[in-house]
């Protein structure tokens, strides 16, 4: 059970900025309203953020992963169940890559 100092530093940094987002948002945004554009940008961030994560990740993947992504989209849209969607995607990739 190792705990490397460089890893610990990253963990503490991640924890600090995350808490800042959770509690600081309450403390600051309650006191003063952000500019319109900043508020709109924050509201629209989630979609583009996930797309910007998925696009380069998928560009580096094989055809099985693309089929897996299609399965994830289909199952998530049909069932609205995150667990089922992930399972379907992993199963599709397993099926197409063959073996174990």
């Amino acid at each position: 059970m190792a705990l490397r100092p460089d890893v610990l530093a990253v963990i503490l940094g991640m924890a600090a900025v995350t808490y800042l987002c959770r509690a600081g948002g309450y403390a600051v945004l309650r006191a003063l309203r952000p500019p319109r554009f900043v508020a709109a940008l924050l509201r629209h961030l989630p979609g583009p953020l996930f797309v910007a994560y998925v696009a380069p990740a998928m560009a580096a993947q094989d055809a099985a992963a693309w089929a897996g992504a299609a399965a994830v989209l289909a199952v998530q849209a049909a069932t609205r169940n995150l667990a089922a969607a992930i399972a379907a995607g992993v199963a599709a990739v397993a099926l197409l890559r063959g073996g174990s």
Binding site: D6, V7, G25, L45
Partner: peptide, 22 residues
């Protein structure tokens, strides 16, 4: 471990929680 990159990315991803708290 990538201190700046990981902390910066974490901040960006979690920024969405700031308006939720408010």
């Amino acid at each position: 471990a990538p201190l700046l990159a990981a902390v910066f990315a974490t901040f960006l991803v979690n920024l969405r929680m700031a308006p939720m708290g408010a």
